[in-house]
């Protein structure tokens, strides 16, 4: 009897683990299965590089380059904000703050990570956008710039906690060696600590990129939503995730529009998958 239960238990754990892998496979298969048929009607080249996204016109066009550019503008903008703030906060928490201040700052930054994205979206839409509109005399505050700010603050805790881990893993002996040679704290940070922890820092940035480009609610609510090539960061954009979530409700099951949205998801998946593999290998090297 005992033997039987032992084997049974083993079997159950195996099923769970394999089930998890099947889920991942299922996700990949399902988005490819629903998305790939699009390319019977649209050439891949036209899909990726076409500049017109008119999925519901009589003469429908499915070029997503404006959507990709929208995603990139917002994501890179977010990183421009999140990298200095996140790295700076991490260095402050790890190297400068006395113990009591660290105990306050660390959970607060973690708190930032726990806030649901839709609440960020609400904040961006109802509070930040009107402020940006007035400040820069724009017609609308819902644009790439506002979205990048909000997204940057969402990504900040991810970058910060990865950088902090990386800094913490630098041996104390290296700090002492540098200080004992007459380096100031700042020189120790910039010349010894950051170089020594750079793989972790880069890993954090990559992870932040993956997270930002995949974020949906904020860009859906705040980025404005027009599928155009932005001429400045103060213009409205339609990132890929926003297009998928805004338009899926209008589609009919397995019509061409539905397929095109899944095809966007394939592109998104490949990008985020690439970045998670990259940050994974960075972590491995360490």
């Amino acid at each position: 009897m005992k033997k039987l239960y032992d084997s049974l238990f083993y079997l159950i754990t195996l099923i769970c683990a394999v089930g998890t892998m099947i889920m991942l496979a299922g996700i990949i298969i399902s988005i490819f299965n629903e998305g790939l048929p699009l390319f019977r009607h649209v050439k891949i080249w036209d899909f990726l590089f076409g500049t017109f996204w008119y999925p519901t016109h009589a003469e429908a066009e499915f070029g997503i380059s404006t959507l990709i550019v929208g995603s990139l503008v917002v994501t890179l903008g977010a990183l421009v904000i999140a990298i200095p703030l996140g790295l700076g906060s991490a260095i402050f928490i790890s190297e400068i703050a006395p113990a009591w201040l660290r105990e306050i700052c660390k959970p607060l930054i973690e708190l930032l990570a726990g806030i649901p994205s839709v609440v960020y979206g609400l904040f961006g839409m109802a509070l930040l956008a009107p402020m940006i509109r007035q400040l820069f005399h724009l017609d609308s505050g819902l644009n790439a710039f506002t979205a990048a700010i909000i997204l940057g603050l969402m990504v900040l805790p991810i970058i910060s906690s990865m950088c902090e881990d990386a800094l913490q893993s630098v041996p104390k002996a290296l700090r002492e060696a540098s200080l004992a040679l007459g380096a100031t704290r700042w020189e120790t940070i910039t010349r010894v600590l950051i170089p020594a922890s750079r793989t972790g820092v880069i890993g954090g940035v990559l992870m932040g990129f993956g997270r930002a480009i995949g974020e949906t609610m904020v860009v859906l609510m705040v980025a404005g939503g027009s599928a155009q090539m932005p001429k400045s960061i103060f213009q409205s954009v339609r990132p890929m995730t926003a297009a998928i979530s805004a338009e899926m409700g209008e589609t009919v099951f397995r019509d061409i529009h539905y397929q095109s949205l899944f095809a966007i998801a394939i592109v998104l998946f490949i990008i985020t998958f690439g970045f998670s593999l990259l940050s994974e290998t960075m972590g491995r090297k360490r």
Partner: peptide, 30 residues
């Protein structure tokens, strides 16, 4: 200035993860 004038060597060897040359030049570089 004080720490350049009064050098210190620690219990466990703690070279920086840099080249041999960069380790020695560090104090002068900064």
């Amino acid at each position: 200035h004080l720490r350049a004038k009064v050098g210190m060597v620690f219990q466990k060897p703690n070279p920086f993860p840099k080249s041999i040359y960069k380790n020695v030049s560090y104090g002068l570089d900064i």
